[in-house]
Design a protein around this nucleic acid. Structure first.
Length: 421
RNA sequence: GGGGGCGUGGUCCAGUGGUCUAGGACGUUGGCCUUUCAAGCCAAAGAUCGCGGGUUCAAAUCCCGUCGCCCCUACCA
């Protein structure tokens, strides 16, 4: 029997990193076993589900490059199937009406056990489970019923979802059995927590996939990082291509304890991925983020200093547009003869020919020697004059990339700014 | 309250009876490099494996208890 898994988010909010990981694990499992990945939208809560959230989830999955083979199926649109199931349960005596709603009858004694691929055997006493509502008094189906029916109808063989559903599993199992259906295998993956130990939410930083994208993380880096949140291949492997993840991922090796999302580590990993990109490819990614063209040269001289795509603009934006000079940076750098050194640098740069980073370096280093100062005493004023800040790519490359005319013009403007203040 | 799950340095992952005087990564600290910031390289600190007891020649690993955290206990998903 071929494997069928599903990712079943409810469109009541953005897709956060925990959901992304659930989707990824399902996807990896399916892709590694020639299985089918089904996408189902659990939108039976009409109050909180919105089309915007559905679009947002699909967009996030596409960005992550987690393609699905079937769906997206709307759970709400399958309500006829759910209604039929409730009728069947009513008829067979597994369910009964209660003040307009329908409840499923849970045995008073005994217990129910299921095998979980990551947690092992889980046993629950029936006494701890109340007769739960499967159909509201308005006729609409509830989560547990809808999930059981849909998993059955869609031929789902493996349910891979968050550990917050462990306690729902016995209910779904009872439903499936009462319906005469063969239950799927289950695998409950640990939840993701914020640094404070609570469930991940907005206040924990870039928690949604959109935020990750907007911060300039690469989907391949996110996949690699997120895969490692709750799963490890061995004691030392950190970087894995998506193909390797597909090949190596297994539910049995998924950890059982909740993980904390660490954006710093993601940033580090993203930086590593970013540095391996061809400059032209990196430029394409940056352009995708900003929605505008950027000079390839600006990308080339910034690549080593970036951890995320969004680092580009603060670092190399000066090559695209002239910026205002940061007054504090300026003051700090222009103390004790700064203007003189800057003028000397200007003259040297005027002579440099051709205007490439080698000649620029030679010219500026000559100034350093002649004035008998430290390199930074000359380089920093130039840096602030042309970039507006004290942080930029290498100064020689930056100056060369800016070009002689613009460099001199900016130095002049800066010097004028100095005399005016 | 009831039921379920989890507990290895600040964080993620590895280790399920001896090779663990607990391994790798992020982070942190120091150093090198050096024109800024990063990156890179080198080094260091940081864990009585939640706690207590037991089994055993031997336990992070097995058993019992205990504490803490999380989830479910909705006519939410």
């Amino acid at each position: 029997m071929s494997i069928r898994v599903r990712f079943a988010p409810s469109p009541t909010g953005v897709l956060h990193i925990g959901g992304a990981r659930t989707a990824l694990y399902n996807w990896l499992f399916a892709r590694g076993r020639n299985g089918t990945f089904v996408l189902r939208i659990e939108d039976t809560d009409r109050e909180r589900s919105t089309p915007e959230n559905v679009d947002q989830i699909l967009e996030a999955l596409r960005w992550l490059e987690l393609d699905w083979d079937e769906g997206p199926a709307s759970q709400w649109e399958r309500r006829e199937r759910h209604a039929d199931a409730v009728d069947q349960l009513l008829e067979s005596g597994h369910a009964y009406e209660d003040e307009g709603a329908v409840r499923f009858r849970v045995p008073d004694e005994g217990e129910i056990t299921f095998q979980d691929a990551v947690l092992g055997d889980i046993t629950n006493p029936y006494s701890a489970i109340n007769d739960f509502v499967i159909r509201r008094s308005d006729g609409s189906p509830l989560y547990n019923l809808a999930v059981a029916v849909d998993d059955r109808d869609m031929g789902v063989t493996h349910v891979v979802r968050g550990q917050d559903h462990v306690s729902n599993t016995p209910r779904q199992l009872m439903l499936l059995r009462a319906l005469g259906a063969e239950p799927p295998a289950y695998a409950h993956i640990p939840l993701l927590h914020g640094p404070d130990g609570r469930k991940l939410s907005k206040r924990h930083g870039a928690a949604s996939v959109q935020e990750l994208r907007d911060a300039g993380y690469l989907p391949e880096a996110v996949r690699n990082y997120v895969a490692l949140l709750g799963w490890g291949y061995d004691e030392s492997t950190t970087f894995m291509t998506t193909e390797e993840l597909v090949e190596r991922f297994s539910l049995e090796r998924v950890s059982r304890n909740p993980a904390v999302f660490d954006e710093q580590k993601l940033r580090w990993m993203n930086g590593r991925y970013l540095r391996e990109l061809e400059p032209a490819e990196l430029a394409r990614r940056i352009e995708g983020l900003y929605g505008r063209e950027v000079p390839l040269e600006a990308v080339e001289i910034s690549q080593d200093k970036m951890q995320a795509l969004a680092d580009f603009w603060p670092l190399a934006g000066f090559l695209v547009e002239r910026r205002e000079i940061d007054q504090q940076a300026w003051d700090r750098v222009m103390r004790d003869g700064g203007p003189e050194r800057l003028r000397a640098a200007r003259e040297a740069l005027q002579q440099a020919e051709p205007f490439d980073s080698e000649t620029v370096e030679r010219a500026l280093r000559e100034v350093v020697e002649r004035l008998e100062v430290k390199p930074r005493d000359v380089f920093q004023p130039v840096r602030v004059a042309i970039t507006g800040t004290t942080v930029s790519p290498g100064i020689f490359e930056s100056v060369a990339a800016l070009g002689r005319d613009e460099t001199l013009a900016r130095i002049d403007a800066a010097l004028e700014h100095e005399t005016n203040s």
